[in-house]
């Protein structure tokens, strides 16, 4: 934002749609070390605070007839619980806290990223990649621990003709290892693209002639992005649950 004000181009039209994603130390300095407090740290902390506010402060009444905040927490809890139970089965319930943590983190980060001047942590592949890889390794380990070598039957499509099975096995194997890539880039790409597009239209708003159109477009895209924020968090979570189901019940 500051860089925009100091841009060398003509004052009307300034495009730096990706500058909003730059990781910067909050308290001066240039170098981003391992423990440096950056804008990423700040918005991760805000996500933690938002989740704690909703689920700890919001439910502190423990009311039989819930307050508004408590109902939101309960609806999210019930929604996720039912999703895990319906998709992955009863024996997946013990992983519910992990899945709920993932879902709430992504949901909170996506919506916090939509605040003006904020930083969208889920637009970074470092963040979504870690989430996706964590899911990938956890699910693979669970699969082998629960089913032993039987987990490999996930790649052996026993309903296909014998001649096709080796080929299908290779395809299944590739698709299995592509999962974390698609899983992370789907979320990061969606959030990044939405924010970049809003920023591009914000740049057009500097031209008086088209600024009303630009502002209207920003409004419309912002509405779409609100939807995307919720949907992408949901998609990431339900894919995680589907992968978990594969690990618990690998048979096709």
């Amino acid at each position: 934002m500051a860089t925009e004000a100091h841009g060398e181009e003509a004052p009307g039209l300034v495009f730096h749609p990706l500058d909003q994603f730059i990781v910067k130390p909050l308290f001066g300095g240039e170098h981003v070390g391992l423990f440096t407090i950056t804008n990423v740290t700040l918005w991760l902390a805000l996500a933690v605070a938002a989740i704690a506010a909703l689920f700890v402060l919001g439910t502190r009444g423990r009311a039989i007839v819930p307050s508004r905040t408590q109902s939101i927490a309960e609806v999210l809890y019930g929604f996720t619980y039912k999703m895990v139970e319906d998709v992955a089965g009863k024996d997946a319930i013990k992983f519910f806290p992990y899945i709920f943590t993932l879902f709430m983190f992504i949901l909170a980060s996506n919506f916090l990223g939509l605040l003006p001047m904020s930083f969208a942590t889920t637009s970074h592949f470092a963040v979504t990649g870690v989430l996706a890889l964590a899911v990938f390794f956890t699910v693979t380990i669970i699969g082998f621990v629960k089913n032993g070598a039987g987990f490999l039957s996930l790649f052996w499509v026993s309903s296909a003709p014998m001649a096709l099975r080796p080929i299908l096995a290779i395809i299944e194997l590739i698709s299995y290892f592509v999962r974390p890539v698609s899983h992370s880039i789907r979320l990061g790409g969606n959030i990044m693209a939405g924010h970049a597009v809003i920023k591009v239209f914000a740049g057009f708003a500097g031209l008086a002639a088209i600024s009303p159109i630009a502002v209207l477009s920003i409004t419309a895209i912002y509405g779409l992005e609100v939807l995307v924020a919720g949907v992408q968090a949901y998609v990431f979570t339900i894919l995680t649950v589907v992968y978990l189901k594969d690990a618990l019940h690998p048979a096709h």
Binding site: T41, L44, V48, I51, F105, L131
Partner: peptide
């Protein structure tokens, strides 16, 4: 840096929840 703070955040969220 991002991964470190992300892991910290996730662990905190997990324990709070």
């Amino acid at each position: 840096n991002q991964i470190f703070w992300l892991v910290v955040a996730l662990v905190v969220i997990f324990f709070v929840l």
